[in-house]
């Protein structure tokens, strides 16, 4: 496949307008989370209105970048076309310290050593000129 083959291009996030600050911060290497100023809950992924109390009085706060692996899988074959060159790669659901979950990849790890509930911390990987993706690596 060539760089021009449409299927070889990595999919980029299709950004909802209210999530733009999250991606702008990620671009600068910072993990931030949406916060409801009315019911004081942390929200991820970002919403147009608070999923708990429906308030639109929403702000942002820095995240610690620490969490645990809720579950993970090492993709070894039959990956989507855009990821065929990446196998083996790790997809994981991360539970952040702030109490919200996100999907990500585990990087800088020995795939055989991963276990559920293992502590991880955020790192940022460049996707293209616009996007850095927050990913996670085991805490050493």
């Amino acid at each position: 496949m060539t760089q021009n083959d449409v299927r070889s291009t990595k999919p980029v996030p299709v950004v909802a307008p209210w999530a733009r600050p999250f991606w702008d911060a990620a671009h600068e290497g910072r993990l931030i989370l949406q916060h409801c100023e009315d019911c004081d809950r942390v929200i991820h992924y970002p919403r147009m209105a608070c999923p708990h109390c429906s308030s639109t009085n929403l702000g942002w706060q820095p995240a610690s970048g620490r969490g645990t692996i809720y579950s993970f899988t090492v993709v070894q074959s039959n990956a989507p076309s855009a990821f065929a060159g990446d196998v083996p790669y790790v997809v994981a659901v991360i539970r952040l310290e702030e109490g919200v979950q996100m999907l990500s990849n585990i990087v800088e790890c020995n795939n055989d050593d991963l276990v559920c509930d293992q502590p991880v911390q955020v790192v940022f990987e460049r996707l293209d000129d616009e996007f850095n993706l927050p990913k996670f690596r085991p805490v050493r």
Binding site: P11, A19, Y45, L103, S104
Partner: peptide
């Protein structure tokens, strides 16, 4: 498309 597709999520 925003929160999972960019990480290579699929049905497996």
């Amino acid at each position: 498309m925003e929160w999972e597709v960019p990480y290579g999520q699929h049905y497996s």
